[in-house]
Amino acid sequence: MQASNRLLDFPKPVFSMLWQFMQRFNYELAVLSRFFIAIVGGYFFTAVSVSLLSVVVPVSKVDAVLLSVSASILIYTLVFIYSFYLQSLKTVWISILLSVAVQFFILSLMKGWL
């Protein structure tokens, strides 16, 4: 009993140190998190939405690719601004992750990967 208690004791100081670190740098971490979702989340959102667009648009293959690619930066910019538009960081993370997943799912269905 005592031995297992001591084993469980080990992670505690690490967790509390981590927790203190996160509370002290709360603002900086929030900033980093927002930039991360804007840049990386934005990139994946654009990648998946632009691929979906190229499959959905009723034009020739070459045209579909060229059209999607021309619009890609517009989409990326909008997602980036969106990440800084909403107040709640949680909402931003969830909405972007969810929309990327949904679009990827639809894309997989359309392309028959699933």
Partner: peptide
């Protein structure tokens, strides 16, 4: 753009970006 977003070409063409460039 084709360096950072090759995905539309890869989605639409079986042989990916090569296929696209040959077509265009």
């Amino acid at each position: 753009i084709f360096m950072i977003f090759p995905y539309p070409a890869q989605t639409v063409y079986e042989n990916g970006i090569r296929g696209f460039f040959n077509d265009v």
